[in-house]
Design a binder for these strands. Structure first.
Length: 272
DNA sequence: AGCTTCGCCTGCTTGC
DNA sequence: TGCAAGCAGGCGAAGC
């Protein structure tokens, strides 16, 4: 599932395809793919792409003379750029839900098997506030995280998944971050707020390594060229229930926190 | 307001 | 081998 590293990898590969291209026409198969308050894709016709970026888990395309397209990939969304005459391999046509036809016979395609993704089109640029996207883990100050966590009683795992608090961390990297920070995922925000510096540092380590590896391929995620990412081979706890902890050989446990599968080492990440 | 649960959706895995 | 049930999960909405 696309989290920050997967979106970063996607955005980097899209950039050379898209920069400077003008939108000729657009197509979106399901209206429900639009987030509430979004304009239609048609508003982007005749505008030129002048930046492709990542904000949290969202791909953000900015246009000249104005306008933005924010794509949240949900669990199974893919953004792929291609020559119009050479559609991408390894993705099924029935999952093609959105298309931007660009000049130079280039196309930006959106595939999403489960349709959990969302499009948001707007004229102005305060989408971060509109969409409730919090600070990027690479930019956030430890003190800011500490302030948010200190009065919270929800489990730290749930708080790390809350995009309003810090943006870009999903289920895989929340578990990985807490393993390296040696924090039990069920501890409350208040209990671990003093460790904010460590949490942020470990989150950056994990996310940075995953970016270098082209993301994690779990289930559906593919890199833009169709190849698999490599970080799943380096997961310390995610998806490793019952297998020995890489540090102490204690079997990794799986519990459910906030409705999410949660993986941790009971010895390295003590409850108290 | 903060926290938890639910439902969306469909492909893959599991069990009979 | 084939089928149905169960599971996965980002995120918004609803409920407490």
């Amino acid at each position: 599932m696309p989290e920050l590293p997967e979106v970063e990898s996607t955005v980097r590969s899209l950039k050379p395809w898209l920069l400077g291209r003008r939108v000729r026409r657009t197509r979106l198969r399901y209206r429900c793919l639009y987030r509430r308050g979004s304009l239609g894709l048609g508003a982007l016709v005749d505008r030129e792409i002048h930046d492709v970026d990542r904000v949290g888990k969202n791909a953000v395309i900015r246009f000249k003379p104005g306008g933005i397209l924010v794509v949240n990939l949900g669990m199974t969304g893919h953004l792929v750029a291609c020559d119009a005459s050479r559609p991408p391999q390894g993705v099924r046509a029935k999952h093609l839900h959105g298309r931007l036809f660009l000049d130079g016979d280039i196309e930006l395609r959106y595939y999403d098997a489960r349709r959990f993704g969302h499009f948001y089109v707007a004229e102005q640029c305060d989408f971060r506030r509109d969409l409730g996207i919090g600070p990027d883990p690479f930019a956030m100050r430890p003190a800011a995280l500490r302030n948010v966590l200190q009065d919270r009683v929800a489990p730290i795992k749930s708080l790390l998944l809350d995009q309003r608090i810090v943006s870009g961390i999903g289920n895989i990297y929340a578990d990985e971050t807490l393993f390296y920070a040696r924090i039990h995922p069920a501890r409350t925000g208040g209990e671990v707020s003093a460790a904010s510096r460590v949490i942020l540092a470990r989150a950056r380590d994990v996310l940075g390594r995953a970016i270098d590896d082209g993301g994690s391929t779990v289930r559906d995620y593919r890199r833009a060229d169709g190849s698999a990412g490599g970080f799943q081979h380096h997961h310390a706890v995610y998806g490793r229930a019952g297998q020995p902890c890489l540090r102490c050989r204690t079997p990794v446990e799986r519990i459910v926190i906030g409705g999410r599968g949660t993986h941790f080492c009971p010895k390295c990440q003590p409850v108290r």
